[in-house]
Design a protein around this nucleic acid. Sequence first.
DNA 1: CCGAATCCTGGTAGATACTG
DNA 2: CAGTATCTACCAGGATTCGG
Lengths: 215, 215
Amino acid sequence: MTARVYGQFCGLARAMEVVGERWTLLIVRNLLSGPQRYTDLRKGLPTIPTNILSARLKQLEEAGLVTRRALPHPERAVVYELTDYGRDLEPALVAFGRWGARTMTTPRPGEAITAESVAMAFRTTYRSEVARGATVGYEVRMGDFTLRLQIADGSLTVGIGPHPAPDLVIERLADQGVHALMTGAKTPDQALADGSVRVEGEPGLLHRFVETFRF
Amino acid sequence: MTARVYGQFCGLARAMEVVGERWTLLIVRNLLSGPQRYTDLRKGLPTIPTNILSARLKQLEEAGLVTRRALPHPERAVVYELTDYGRDLEPALVAFGRWGARTMTTPRPGEAITAESVAMAFRTTYRSEVARGATVGYEVRMGDFTLRLQIADGSLTVGIGPHPAPDLVIERLADQGVHALMTGAKTPDQALADGSVRVEGEPGLLHRFVETFRF
DNA sequence: CCGAATCCTGGTAGATACTG
DNA sequence: CAGTATCTACCAGGATTCGG
C-alpha cells in the first residue's frame, strides 16, 4: 500500500496529493456556489460515477476541505459545504479555469452547460479592475437555471438561483446569447436587437456587464 | 474507448483534461525553470516512473504545452521546453503551490528537496507588492544546488544555477537555514549569528530578501 | 550514457445495479 | 435520497530491456 505521494517537499506537490485526483477540483468548484446535497452534486456533475463522488467527498472531508452536515428536521437531508480551507482554493481554481477557457470556443458534442460551469465562467472572466468600488447585482437567466452575481467592494460573489434585488436581469433567449456578449462576438446593442438576450432594469447596465465579464 | 473527458463546457474541466493527470503539473513546474533534458526531469522528479514521464511528455507535446528540440551538434541531446501556452500555466501553479504550502511545515520522511521545488517555493512566496519597482539579483546556494533569483520591474524570474552578477549571495549552511528565514522562525540577524546562513554582498539586503519571500 | 519501450502487477476509474 | 456493491477496463508503479 504505497500512499500515492510525490515524495517532494513542495507546495504544489502537496496540493496535488490532496486535490489532484480526477473529479476532486470539479466538486470543489461546485461547492463554491454554496452548500450542496449529494443529489445536487450528481446533477451538477452529470457523468461522475456515484462511487467516485462518494469516495471524493469522504477524502475531502478527511482532508478538512469539506464538512458534512445533516440539515435539521423537516429537510432531513445531508449537505456538503466547503470549509474556509477549501474555499481558499478559489483563486487557484479561477487561475486554472482562465487558462483552460482559452481553448474553449464552442461546446463539444454532448458537453453539458451546467449552472456551476457558468458560475465558474463568471468567476474566471471577472475583471476586478473594471468593477472597482462599484456595487451592483445581476440576475442571469440561462433557461434551465438562473445565477445571481453580486459585486461589492470590488469583489464578486456568485450563487445559484435568482437575485433578491437585481439591478439588472439578463435573460438568455438564444443559445450562446450571453456567451457571445462575453467574448465580444456581439455588442450589447446587437444582442438586444436580434433578440438573443433580453433585459429588465436599466439597459445601460448591460454595457457595464460586458466590460466586467470578458473572456 | 471513452476518452477521459468531463463532459462539461467549463474552463476548469478543460484544463483538467489537459493537465489533470498525475505528474503532469510537476513536469510543467520543473520546465518553468528552463529547458530540461529527459534525464534532468528524472532527476528533478526522483520517484516518477520512466514510462509515465515519457507518456506525459508526449501528451504535453501533443497538447502544445511543450516542444521537443534536439540540441545542435556537440551536445547531441534532446531538450524539452515550455511553449508560451505552457508557460501561461505559471499563475495557476503558483496559486496552487501557495495553497498547498500552508500545510507544509517540515519535510516528511524520505521527501526530497529538489532545486525545482525550492524554485517553486520562491515563486509562491514572492510578494510583488514588497518588491515593487526594485531591481535586485540574489544567488541562493542550497548545498546540492544553487538558484538565481532576479527581480526586475516588480516581476520575479527564477532559474537553476548561479547568478551571473548577484547583489547578494545567500548560502545555506544548516538544514532549514533559508526556510527558517522565510517562515519568520528566525530573523536575519539570528540566522547570521548562529551560522545557519552566510551571505556575500551587502548584508542589509538580507532584510529585503526576507520581506520579499515570505511563507 | 541518454531516451526511451516493454512487461507485469495492482490500484483506480467507469458503468450499472442495488439497498437502508 | 444518499449512498454501497460489483464488475470491467484502464492507468499508474516498478523493474527490466533496448536502440542510438
